[in-house]
Amino acid sequence: MSRRPLLEGLLLAMWLIVNESLALHHWLLGTAFALGIAALVRALRPQIAHPRRLGVALRLSWHVLCDVVRSNLAVGRIILGTLRQQPKIGFLQIPLEMRDPHGLAMLAVIITATPGTVWAGHDPADNVLTLHVLDLQDEAAWLQTIKQRYERPLMEIFE
């Protein structure tokens, strides 16, 4: 594991939340489980993420929450308007600069969790992301959002 036992800490927190108790025996049992499971999982995924800069991560989470709310309203409006016309769907190619696999995974989850956009593939050879968009009106705006709002902070966090 890294210098900071992130996975162990998360597993211990999960154990304490499930049991809803801060008693000593839950701490001991949870620590034992966390260490054991983290040791087992390490063999499955030898690559370790080194996230940094908590402040950037918090600001990114806030931006993502705002975007999720905004695009929920936008997609809802499109759905309720489908009696008049179907939306204009389409694929979008976006060249990326980020190479870190954990950053790419986070980018995939962020893009897919936002309604209206779905991650449709990534070409590792030339690092191009294929994106599927529900309402393809302004390609440049999508490109700008992905690159500036998500990719830049993720690069700061993971690279």
């Binding site: 489908t82 179907q86 939306p87």
Partner: peptide, 28 residues
């Protein structure tokens, strides 16, 4: 939100449009 998302699942006429609809209910 969940109801509108499921309604989109029913109303869109293409699978690539339908896949966007349930995300509403699943997240927010």
């Amino acid at each position: 939100l969940s109801l509108v998302g499921a309604l989109g699942l029913l109303r869109f006429n293409h699978f690539f449009a339908r896949i966007h609809a349930p995300t509403m209910g699943n997240t927010l």
